[in-house]
Write a protein that binds this DNA or RNA. Structure first.
Lengths: 219, 219
DNA sequence: ACCTGAACACCGTTCAAGT
DNA sequence: ACCTGAACACCGTTCAAGT
């Protein structure tokens, strides 16, 4: 019998389930039901649940709309990071998978290549390029998890973090107590502004990068 | 009958299981066996598996060795971030929980307060303080996941990422192909150097932070 | 009140049998 | 070769019964 499904079918249905029901909603059984077949049929296409999750990561990665390079490497770096951010925002429940599951597919490495290429156009290479790549990646992944995945999966409103902090002794957490209402009111621009900070760091860190070249707080 | 266990007992055993057997090794049943009791006994101390995982996050957070404040806010910010990094490095299997599970315990908010306080000592407040806090947090969390959790849970050696990339068409991934061997050879200093980039960004971004104040790539 | 065994409704996956 | 039902070894948790 010929193959009933394509890998793309499976990816599409799996991502749809994650988007609709969350990560816990995706099981071999629920995916099989979505494809109108039995659970064991999936094992003709996928080795394991782990492999299925990597397929979801590939599907999400393929949705990143890569920008065209320009002559401004900082703007290009920002554009790639923003493209990743937009994709994560559209599929927040999949973020933990993207952070956790390692893939080597073309789809998942294409955004990484675009990011590395933009940084290389800024004259970074060798260890400096590696550090810059890891730093921008870590920022994008970390803020996506904190800002997008946390909130949605837990059905938190914007003010709940503030309430949680307020419930504790404010004397022991004076700075967080002041910060919490700001965070509740100010949503959706952390990414852009935080990315500006990271990019300014890339521009203003002497090369080669070296942690002994620490900027003084008095400058 | 009096309580046989304390919450600290449960936290200690749970974290020990995660450290030894990984996240998948921690189940209500394995934890109960470790405590020499039945699975249902745990429900006298913990509402659910989710709550148990939050307890593990608290246990990890409590291990962060908070530095004393000095008169240098940049050094203090670095010290708090580094303390977090050291704790994550000692318990890499727990990192996905720390990234994913939200807690409001004193233990887990203490490092956050220390970080926010260090940034506030640098003159940051309001939205700028919030952005700076999120940015440093995102960098620490993101790089911990990428550098520590990924490698250990998958038993990857340092060169496997390079091999994966090399296995693909290098023509399509020219920058990553050059970058992969660098990453394989250069391990363990991404955090320090990346953190320097982020801190330099904080120092060199005009206040109030605004993404229109983007540094030019020509500076 | 605190404890806990039996049982239920799941889950991923092995195995063996179908076509 | 590709498909797939039955069954196995798990899992978190409800329920009810113990002390």
């Amino acid at each position: 019998m010929r193959a009933r499904f394509t890998l793309a079918d499976i990816q599409q249905h799996a991502l749809a389930i994650v988007d609709r029901d969350g990560l816990a909603g995706l099981t071999m059984r629920s995916l099989a039901a979505s494809l109108q077949t039995g659970p064991m049929t999936l094992y003709n296409y996928v080795d394991s649940r782990e492999a299925l999750e990597e397929l979801v990561v590939d599907a999400v990665s393929a949705l990143v709309e890569m920008p065209e390079p320009t002559d401004d490497w900082v703007a290009d770096t920002r554009a790639v990071a923003t493209a990743l951010w937009r994709t994560f925002r559209a599929h927040p429940a999949a973020i933990p998978l993207v952070l956790t599951r390692r893939t080597s597919s073309r789809a998942s490495l294409a955004p990484a290549e675009a990011l590395a290429a933009a940084l290389a156009r800024g004259g970074l290479d060798g260890v400096d390029l590696f550090v810059a790549f890891r730093t921008v990646s870590a920022f994008v992944m970390g803020i996506a998890q904190a800002e997008l995945a946390g909130r949605l999966s837990r059905e938190e409103d914007a003010g709940s973090a503030a309430q949680r902090v307020a419930a504790l002794a404010p004397d022991a957490l004076p700075t967080l107590s002041k910060l919490a209402p700001v965070g509740a009111a100010f949503t959706g621009q952390e990414f852009e502004r935080g990315l500006t900070v990271v990019l300014n760091g890339l521009v203003h860190t002497p090369r080669p990068f070296d942690s002994s070249d620490q900027a003084s707080g008095l400058s």
